[in-house]
Design a protein around this nucleic acid. Structure first.
Lengths: 138, 138
DNA sequence: CTTGAAGCTCTAGTCACTAGAGGTTGTAGA
DNA sequence: TCTACAACCTCTAGTGACTAGAGCTTCAAG
């Protein structure tokens, strides 16, 4: 049996975050000692590991809730889990595209200036003021 | 002179967002009609355009406040503006790296499953449960 | 002069935590 | 067995950048 602090150390999830996960229903309410402190078993450890991993991969709390739900109903099709993962992948790819465009634009802006003028003729400020300067869309 | 709605249409920034920008000090308080409605001139339009563009590039409100501050003090060095932009670029590049790693991992997870099993032997769920499956770090 | 779209302020909600106050419990050492 | 104190508890509020809604007022066209 682990205390919340031990669970925290083993998973790398902060103590208040674990309590938060319980509050929003991601983690099932833990058992308590007589003095009302949470105690976890191996099962709780694994569940939190799952959540941690999924959060690291950018899944929303909502998506993780759905995944855990699927886990607990082995009769349901695995297809739904795959769909959630595919959706997350699409999401990540969209963000990647957007960030790549931002990078291009920022390189143009940030490297276009030698930093030696004053802000009256600053290339950075001028670029931000005038969208026309941009090559791409955003 | 524009109303807040006209300003919104011209810049693509939503009306409540314009009010929010004023509230947090990003936009100087607009002049008002006798009936207390905001009125903007060309200057306000340009300032909002600047903010919009910078937000689109992912600059924080704080960073934009600093940039506007620099704009209003033409005696100050342009170097600070360049530094802010460089910082933003570094930030974007970090996010890009992270997202690329996520993409790789998600491709492995989401495409590794044919979606035809049940959640008992689902590759997606197994991968999320066990960090060992991962090739990279995250 | 009427009507209704657009404006106003203020409060609260979003997501996923994080911080802090103020009190209680568990456990190691004396 | 006692004591000290780290770790725990609950509750509220704050973060960033908005967004939504209630309830009211003003503007401008017909």
């Amino acid at each position: 049996m682990f205390s919340i602090g031990q669970l925290s150390k083993q998973t790398g999830v902060k103590v208040p975050t674990i309590r938060y996960y319980e509050q929003v229903g991601l983690l099932v309410s833990a058992g308590r000692t007589e003095g009302n402190q949470r105690r976890y078993d191996k099962d709780g450890l694994e569940r939190l590991g799952f959540i941690r991993h999924a959060r690291d991969l950018g899944f929303s709390i909502e998506a993780i809730t759905a995944l855990i739900d699927l886990q607990q109903h082995p009769d349901r099709s695995c297809q739904q889990a795959t769909e959630i993962a595919q959706h997350q992948l699409t999401d990540v790819r969209e963000k990647l595209l957007r960030l790549k465009a931002l990078e291009t634009e920022l390189v143009r802006i940030a490297d276009g200036c030698d930093g030696e003028g004053n802000s009256d003729n600053c290339y950075v400020l001028a670029s931000l003021a005038d969208h026309q300067h941009c090559r791409g869309e955003h």
